[in-house]
Structures are given as C-alpha cells and as structure tokens.
C-alpha cells in the first residue's frame, strides 16, 4: 500500500476530490455514449457540457469564497447555492 500520509488527507477533502472525480468520469462516459454538440443558452457564449461544468465549478469556488469573506453563516448554504447553480447552468446555460 502506498503511504499517502505526506499528503495530509482528511475526510472532507477526500470526499471533495472523489465527488469531482465521479462527476468527471460520469461526464466523460456520458459524452462518449451520447456526444452533446456545443450550444448557446443563457450564457453569452457557445459552450459544451464540459465548458459549463468548468464554469460551474469555478463560479462555485468564488461563491464559497464570497460566502466566507462576506458572511458569518454556515458554509453549507454556499454549497446548496452552488449545487443549484451548477444544475441550472448545466441544464440552461
């Protein structure tokens, strides 16, 4: 077994990376089975599902940072907002 102690893993960060990994794998499989052509939604640019995922994840990171920087509420609210935003973006973006 490889010793990963130096990477200082914690349960929340492991869950985070596993979730990202699962989303990427699922998206790759989905695109291999049924490729989606680039399209234009409410975003001002033509995007593929991969582009929308990237935009969604990046903007979610900023939502979390903004939440931490400007409010004292629980970070779980930011996660909820991000998940809804990601779904809206993937569907209509």
């Amino acid at each position: 077994m490889i010793n990963l102690e130096w990477m200082a893993w914690t349960a929340p960060t492991a869950t985070f990376f596993i979730t990202i990994g699962v989303i990427l794998s699922a998206m790759t499989t989905w695109q291999l089975i049924a490729p989606s052509p680039p399209r234009r939604g409410f975003l001002p640019l033509t995007t593929t599902p991969g582009d929308r995922l990237f935009i969604g994840l990046l903007s979610s990171a900023y939502v979390h940072l903004g939440w931490l920087g400007f409010t004292d509420f629980s970070i779980w609210f930011a996660l909820g907002i991000s998940v809804i935003w990601l779904i809206v973006l993937m569907r209509w973006g």
Partner: peptide
C-alpha cells in the same frame, strides 16, 4: 491536492495536524 488538504488543517509537523475547516480561508480573506 496536497495544498487543498493543507488548507483545511493546522500543520505542526510530519504527522501532527489538526482539522480546522474553513478557518484559514476566513482568516486569509
């Protein structure tokens, strides 16, 4: 990934660390 792991912990030395959640982000921001 290691940097992400470090960012949620207080690192004292090899094997000595405490989970602090989003505290560092709040402090840095």
């Amino acid at each position: 990934m290691t940097v992400v792991n470090y960012s949620v912990q207080d690192i004292f030395g090899p094997g000595q660390r405490v989970f602090v959640g989003t505290e560092w982000f709040k402090e840095v921001l």
